[in-house]
Design a protein around this nucleic acid. Structure first.
Lengths: 147, 147
DNA sequence: TTTTTTAAAGACTTTTTTGTCTTTTTATAT
DNA sequence: ATATAAAAAGACAAAAAAGTCTTTAAAAAA
């Protein structure tokens, strides 16, 4: 399960991507309101994303958050990695420190299949993919339906 | 990802199941040592399992933890549920409070597949299954190889 | 140049999870 | 009966995660 910080990050970045398509750069107040996340905590998380170069920001009047249109599509796993690291995808299913293919815990194989599929999903899914779904109406992001 | 408490619980109960097969009732000192978990924290977790009827215990000399041989096989999900609840299996992949099949978040379907598979795995896997694997040498539980 | 609006930064607080310590209760052995 | 060995119970502490508050920096508009 993702940390709340990762969840907020993904929702925030999807919101930003959607707004960017209309040439708008939302600020953290608007973002947090629309994705229903705590305002200052959202600001913190976005700061982290900017520091880790997932996102750009400008300060001052008319400022806000936006993606570099040149940069390659951003996958969910990059966001997760920036916010909480990769332990989710490497940790043993029952917490053994020395669990591995050669010395597997008793659910190693079965758990690894699921964990790897989750890793594939987050690797292959991009923020733009999610933004597309919101815009086409295939998915929702709480208050925004984006009509 | 499971909480540490759930991980310790599963490892502890597997250890107990293995020892029970040799008619032994380990205490929390032995258990925590063998599964490499904090002693008092392990005791707390085992207390919870006993309170929730997943496990039996006797106090005093020669006491320790053991399973009712009459009771039906204990699945991992029952342990997880007792220790941390079911949110892992119900929560939206990106934390939307109102995510559902009718109002899905943009990764709802794909995430649900993985989450449901994990639920199936923990539902269909029992403590005895894991104990079998340890005993047959197919899996390890840290320090115990159980020769 | 001053005001306004915005993000950045950092200290701080709260809550949850993880973990420890001490005392009490219960069972057994001597 | 008394000592001993175990779990139960509950208060406490530490660490991590989540969240808030205040000040600073930067950009644009007035």
């Amino acid at each position: 399960m993702l940390s709340k910080a990762s969840e907020y990050a993904i929702r925030a970045l999807v919101y930003i991507a959607i707004k960017n398509r209309d040439a708008m750069r939302p600020g953290y107040r608007e973002i947090s309101r629309e994705i229903e996340a705590p305002e200052q905590f959202t600001a913190k998380i976005l700061q982290t994303c900017v520091r880790k170069k997932l996102l750009l920001s400008v300060r001052g009047r008319g400022g806000g958050f936006f993606f570099d249109p040149e940069s390659k599509p951003l996958s969910l796993i990059e966001i997760i990695n920036a916010i909480e690291g990769m332990t989710l995808f490497t940790r043993c299913g029952i917490g053994l420190s020395r669990c591995s293919d050669t010395a597997p815990c008793p659910i190693h194989k079965e758990y690894a299949v699921i964990r790897d599929r989750y890793q594939q999903l987050t690797t292959n899914t991009t923020i733009d993919d999610l933004a597309d779904k919101i815009i086409s109406g295939e998915g929702v992001l709480n208050r925004i339906t984006m009509e």
